[in-house]
């Protein structure tokens, strides 16, 4: 028993050599991966478990290849970066999100390999990561099943196609909701004979090129990933642009109209 404890302490020390701050609060989800993920994702930055970061997802994954999740950190005020991750997935990080001119809220769907804690972390300007989450039960296997995309002979002709739409601002914060779907197999590389092939970066911009939201996307995102964001474009912007690329150099480019904006020109 003592030998095990000593080994665990040694392991923790080896995996987290630089961290020397005050002891972390106990992980409310009691994850076996927390001690490994903590230094990997947050380095030596302070962390706190915080109910103001909400994670909305089902208790059970009905479809392990497409679990809906919404992470909302608006209760924190200004947020510089968010990380969405599932501790026990083979690739824990689902995405990173910088809400540059956007609310710190994001929704998408992802693949789950087994029952796991599902979390969102949000970094406030003081450098503290605020972490919320919940447990997700799952039959699993979502990361090692081949995507349905390949059932269609012409799938390659459609990679990078974007379907998207924006909704006129409502509510006090005047945020514009935008939803978009990118056709992509999002291969994890874990299916035998199918190399990793996934979108790595997506940026949503104003018509003048100013970045509103920057996404660093990863293997666990569902095939043909869908995103919901709430952005604050410049007042006169009549469209948003989406650009990005996958890990094999494929480009994503699209313009999502804001049809309710009246321009000076016809």
């Amino acid at each position: 028993m003592n030998r095990h404890l000593a080994a665990a302490a040694l392991l923790a020390a080896l995996s987290n050599p630089a961290y020397a701050g005050p002891p972390d609060p106990a992980d409310p989800l009691a994850s076996v991966m927390w001690d490994v993920l903590r230094p990997e994702l947050f380095g030596t930055a302070p962390v706190q478990f915080d109910d103001r970061v909400t994670v909305t997802a089902p208790d059970n994954a009905e479809n392990a290849a497409a679990v809906p999740v919404m992470a909302d950190a608006t209760a924190l005020g200004t947020v510089e970066e968010m990380v969405l991750f599932a501790d026990l997935n083979p690739f824990p990080v689902i995405l990173r999100f910088q809400p540059l001119a956007a609310k710190p809220v994001i929704a998408t769907r992802f693949k789950v390999q087994q029952a796991t804690p599902l979390r969102a972390a949000a970094r406030t300007p003081d450098g503290v990561w605020h972490i919320g989450g919940k447990l997700l039960d799952a039959a699993g296997g979502g990361c090692t099943a081949p995507p349905a995309t390949y059932a269609a002979a012409d799938w390659a002709d459609h990679v990078g196609e974007v379907q998207g739409r924006a909704w006129a601002p409502s509510g006090e914060d005047k945020a514009t909701r935008v939803r978009f779907l990118v056709r992509h197999p999002m291969d994890t590389g874990l299916v035998a004979g199918i190399p990793a092939y996934f979108i790595e970066a997506l940026t949503l911009r104003d018509a003048d090129g100013r970045a509103l939201a920057r996404l660093q996307t990863a293997e666990p995102l569902s095939e043909n990933p869908v995103f919901t964001l709430e952005v604050q474009p410049a007042a006169g912007a009549r469209s948003l642009t989406l650009d990005g690329r996958d890990n094999q150099g494929g480009e994503v480019k699209a313009a999502i109209p804001l049809p309710w904006v009246q321009g000076a020109l016809p």
């Binding site: 497409a66 809906p68 196609e161 974007v162 379907q163 739409r165 939803r179 999502i256 109209p257």
Partner: peptide, 17 residues
């Protein structure tokens, strides 16, 4: 919701590229 939503969603998002 998990079964029916994806197809319904696809139908309301127009192609933009």
């Amino acid at each position: 919701v998990s079964h029916l939503w994806p197809r319904i969603e696809t139908a309301v998002l127009p192609r933009v590229n």
